[in-house]
Computed example of a mutant assay.
Amino acid sequence: MNEAVFQETTAEPRTQSVPLAHLSLELGHLYMEDFEGGPERLGEHFAEVRVWADAVRASAARRSKRPRISTCFLVDDYFTRFSTPAELIPMVIEQARKAGLVIDYLARESACAVADRVELAEAVMHRLVESPPPGSYGSRPHVSQTGWLANGQRTPTGTRSALGAVKGWEPPQETAARNHSVFMDVELWSEKDGTRLWSCPFLAAVWQLARLGLLRHLGEPVLVPQEWEGADFPHDWDRLPPLIRLTDTKAPFSAYRTCTLMPNRFLAVEDAVRLILDQTDVDTEALKQVDKRSRDEGIPVPAAVAQRATYVFYEEPGDSSESEES
Rank of each mutant, 00 (worst) to 15 (best):
D185P: 07
V273S: 02
K250A: 15
E26D: 12
H29T: 01
P201I: 01
L214K: 04
R211I: 05
Q95M: 12
T80N: 13
S144I: 11
P317Y: 11
P90A: 03
Q226E: 14
Q173G: 08
A47H: 12
I276E: 06
V282P: 02
G213K: 02
T146D: 05
A86W: 06
L20C: 06
H45V: 04
P234W: 00
E12D: 15
E191W: 03
L163S: 14
R211A: 10
E8M: 09
V206E: 02
P141C: 06
S181Q: 05
D248Q: 10
P67R: 11
A251T: 04
T71Y: 01
F202P: 00
E315S: 12
G28V: 01
V102G: 12
L214Q: 06
T15D: 08
L267G: 13
R50M: 09
R154L: 11
S59E: 15
H235E: 07
L27T: 01
R117L: 09
D271G: 12
R97N: 11
E109M: 00
D283E: 10
A272T: 00
A177D: 07
R239K: 13
L246D: 05
G43R: 15
D291G: 10
L246V: 09
L197A: 13
S136F: 09
T157M: 15
A303C: 09
T155N: 14
E33L: 10
C259A: 08
A286V: 04
D232V: 14
A205L: 01
R245M: 03
K98Q: 14
L203I: 01
A162I: 13
L42E: 05
Q7F: 12
E191T: 06
V301F: 05
V305Q: 03
E33G: 08
T155V: 14
I103Q: 03
G298D: 10
L25D: 05
V92G: 02
A306F: 06
P317H: 13
F35W: 13
Q279D: 07
Q208V: 07
V182Y: 14
S320R: 14
I93Y: 01
R295Y: 09
T157P: 13
G138A: 04
V186A: 08
L149D: 03
G230W: 08
V301A: 06
L101V: 08
M125H: 06
K167W: 11
D238R: 02
F46I: 04
V305S: 03
M32N: 13
A21D: 05
A150H: 08
E87K: 13
D76Q: 02
E227P: 09
D283H: 08
K167F: 10
A115Q: 00
L218N: 11
L261S: 00
R81W: 01
E325T: 15
G213V: 05
D278T: 11
T159F: 11
S17N: 13
P85T: 00
E174T: 05
G100D: 07
L223Y: 02
G194M: 04
T157H: 10
P13H: 14
A210K: 03
H45L: 08
E8I: 14
P171I: 03
K98I: 12
V166A: 12
Q208D: 07
E170T: 12
P225E: 01
T280C: 10
